[in-house]
Amino acid sequence: MHAVVLHAFGPAENLRYETVPDPVPGPGQVRIAVKAAGVHLVETILRSGRAGESLPPQPELPTIFGGEVAGRVDEVGPGVDPSWIGRDVVTAYGKPGGYAELAVADVTSVHPITIGYETAVAMVVTGVTALQFLDVADLIPSDVVLVTSAAGGIGRLLIQYARGLGAKVVGAAGGPAKVAAVRELGADIAVDYDQPSWAESVAEELGGRTVTALLDGVGGDKARTAFELLADGGRYVTIGNASQQDFLPDPQTVKERDLTVTNALMLLLSEPNTRPQYEVRALAAAAEGTLTPAVQTFPLARAAAAHAALETRATTGKVVLVP
C-alpha cells in the first residue's frame, strides 16, 4: 500500500509518500480501506521533534501518523465477526496511522457510520473535543461568548453550538477570508484579531454588553487582549494554543475580578476514559445536523503540504487527507 512515513524528525518535507507492506489485522481487529484520515496540530509538533508536558510521547521512527480513520472494513482478524466486512466505520485509534491506504484498529474502537467519511473523521476527534470543551465551559443562553481561532475545526463547532443555544457569539480569526467564514457560521460579531484595534471593535459592537465566556484556542498576545474583554465573574477557558505562546492570567487579577480560569485541554488529557461516550455523541450530532464540521482536504500524497498549511494557520476547518 501507499503511506506517508516519517523517518526523521524535522520539517514537513520529511513526510515521505512511499510504498510499505499492507497491515494485517490481528486478533480482535479489523482492517479499514481508508477513505479519509484526520490531520491534527499535535502531529505537526511531534513531527518536528518538539516535546512538552502536555504532548503525547514522541513516536518511535519510522512512523505513520493519523489515528483518525474513516473507511470501509475489508478484512477482519481472528475472533471478529465477519459481518463487519463491507461496513463503513470510523475510529480515533487507527494502527498504523491513517496517513495510509489501509489501517487496522481494534474492533472495540470502531463506530459504524451513515454519514460521509470526511465528516465522520472530523467529528470522531475534533467533534469530540469540541463537545468536551463545551461541557467544561457550561454555556447558557444569556452568555456573551468569545471564541478565538474561530475559523478552525473546533472553533466552528463551538460557534454553531453557542448560536443554537441562543447565546451572543463573537468569533475572532485571522484574515478577511477567515473572518468571512466566521460570519457565515452565524456569529453575531466577526473580527480579525490580526488587526491592532480588534478588541475595541468588539467592545463597540457589543454596545455595553461584556464577554461572559471566553474560549481561547490561540494563547499568547491575542489571548491576553481577549482576556481584557472578559466581564467580572466571567469564565476563561483555554482550549488550545495555536500560537505556541503561553498566556497565564495574573492570579491576583483573577481573584479580584472573581474570574474562573480553566485549562480545558489539560483537564481533558487527564480524563481519557470519557472519550467513548463523547464519540457517540459527536457522531450523532453530525448525523442529526446539529453540528456540521468544515473540512479542508488534501490528497494523501500531499500530507507534507497539509502539515505546512496547518502550521502556518493557512487552513480553514478540519484538515483531512484522502487517498
Score class of each variant (00 low, 15 high):
Met266Cys: 03
Arg209Gln: 15
Leu229Met: 05
Asp216Met: 04
Ala180Arg: 15
Val170Ser: 04
Val254Trp: 04
Leu291Glu: 12
Glu200Gln: 15
Lys255Thr: 12
Val211Thr: 13
Ala177Leu: 09
Glu271Asn: 10
Ala173Ser: 14
Tyr278Leu: 08
Trp198Pro: 06
Arg209Leu: 12
Leu259Asn: 05
Tyr193Lys: 11
Ala173Pro: 04
Thr292Arg: 15
Ala187Thr: 13
Leu214Pro: 06
Ala173Gln: 07
Arg257His: 06
Glu279Leu: 01
Lys222Phe: 00
Leu206Met: 10
Ala180Gly: 15
Leu248Thr: 06
Gly186Arg: 14
Ala285Val: 07
Arg275Ser: 08
Pro196Tyr: 07
Thr210Lys: 15
Met266His: 03
Glu256Thr: 12
Ala226Ile: 00
Leu165Ala: 04
Glu184Phe: 02
Val182Asn: 09
Gly233Asp: 08
Gly233Trp: 04
Ser201Val: 13
Asp192Met: 02
Arg275Trp: 08
Ala285Ser: 09
Val182Ala: 13
Pro251His: 08
Pro249Lys: 01
Gly220Leu: 06
Thr262Arg: 02
Val202Pro: 14
Leu248Pro: 01
Ser243Ile: 14
Ala167Ile: 01
Gly219Asn: 09
Ser270Trp: 00
Asn263Asp: 04
Arg224Phe: 03
Glu256Gln: 14
Val182Gln: 11
Asp216Glu: 05
Gln244His: 14
Asp221Phe: 01
Ala223Tyr: 00
Ala190Trp: 11
Thr253Phe: 01
Gly233Asn: 11
Asp194Cys: 13
Lys255Asp: 05
Met266Arg: 13
Asn273Tyr: 00
Ala173Met: 10
Lys222Asp: 02
Val237Asp: 00
Gly234Asn: 01
Gly166Cys: 04
Asp188His: 15
Pro251Ile: 09
Ile239Asn: 10
Gly171Met: 06
